[in-house]
């Protein structure tokens, strides 16, 4: 450990062969919301990384359709700074970017402005993308949600005014189940604008198929808060109100997300193996087409 603390790091220029430009699909649909797809291209590690390069990486000109088996709709290419206030609000919630921000970005997204299709539980949604003579396809399901049996707040050991949110899950037996945990606080004027994911938001029931047990999650909104003293971070404070969004995802979405988080947390770690993230997009793209089936709970942080 001492040796590692003493190790030193410096920037180097080294040849990394094998760059190949690939289409990146970032698409989702969840219960009660319209589908949204963002297309971009992979960029060379040594390519420019300024904001213009970022905006230029978005891919325009694709023809995208989403079908629930009986209805097929087109996702229209729109720019975020040209959306109606209602659509801007919806797109901002799906992307997790503030409305003010996307209104100032000329960012191309694919969104069914003129359709009313929203995600429904029990349906499977297929995605087709046509671009430059190539076709990319995928499908994802919105599964029956598994609501949490109970949610509560408990002060952490040694404190009375701060703690984690807790939940009791009764995992359905003999079926594959995978979940996503998100949370936001409803604290009047200082409420969070979006749901945020904790450090490790995805889990499947490989370990706990059919079991009922309690588990805890931290407050992701304050974990990176340099403005807070260290012993206040990652806690929900006494008196907070937290809304938990506990979504079900299918196996393929989970496999993507699991490897994605493995990569995020192991990048740069010499003890890990380089992990390319599997995709559920057929046709030679990277990324994911993900269906989410949320159930909501509200926790008031009092004992």
């Amino acid at each position: 450990m001492l040796l590692f603390l003493n190790s030193c790091t410096k920037e180097v220029q080294i040849d990394i062969p094998g760059y190949e430009e690939l289409l990146v699909v970032d698409g989702s649909i969840e219960t009660g919301r319209k589908p949204l797809v963002v297309l971009s291209n992979t960029a060379d590690v040594y390519s420019p990384t300024n904001i213009q390069a970022y905006l230029n990486s978005f891919v325009e000109g694709a023809v995208i359709t989403v079908s629930d088996g009986s209805t097929t709709i087109n996702l229209e290419q729109v720019y975020t700074d040209e959306l109606s206030p209602a659509d801007a609000k919806e797109v901002s919630q799906i992307l997790g970017y503030p409305e003010v921000l996307i209104a100032n970005l000329h960012m191309a997204v694919y969104y069914p402005v003129s359709s009313s299709m929203v995600g429904e539980v029990g349906k499977t949604y297929s995605l087709t993308i046509q671009l430059n003579g190539k076709t990319y396809t995928s499908s994802t399901a919105i599964l029956q949600p598994t609501p949490l049996l109970n949610t509560y707040w408990k002060p952490d050991a040694g404190y009375t005014d701060r703690g984690f949110t807790w939940a009791t899950l009764a995992d359905p037996a003999n079926s594959y189940d995978a979940y996503k945990w998100e949370v936001k606080r409803l604290n009047g004027a200082s409420s969070d604008e979006f749901f945020m994911k904790p450090f490790n938001p995805y889990v499947d029931d490989d370990f706990f198929d059919g079991l009922t047990f309690d588990f805890a999650y931290e407050n992701p909104m304050t974990c990176n808060g340099d403005y807070l003293p260290e012993d206040m971070r990652c806690y929900f404070a006494l008196g907070d109100t937290a809304v938990i969004k506990f979504s079900k995802v299918d196996r393929y979405v989970y496999e993507y997300m699991e490897k994605k988080y493995t990569q995020i947390y192991s990048a740069g770690n010499p003890f890990s193996t380089p992990t390319n993230i599997p995709t559920n997009i057929v046709g030679g793209a990277v990324g994911v087409w993900a269906g989410f089936s949320p159930a909501y709970d509200t926790v008031i942080c009092v004992e």
């Binding site: 062969p17 190949e20 992979t42 590690v45 970017y97 990048a267 990277v286």
Partner: peptide
């Protein structure tokens, strides 16, 4: 090492180049 990068759901992700290249 990663030969390219991309962004999905605000996360920076990498695509690795050929093995041991």
């Amino acid at each position: 090492l990663p030969a390219s990068w991309y962004v999905q759901d605000q996360n920076l992700l990498f695509n690795y180049g050929p093995r041991n290249s």
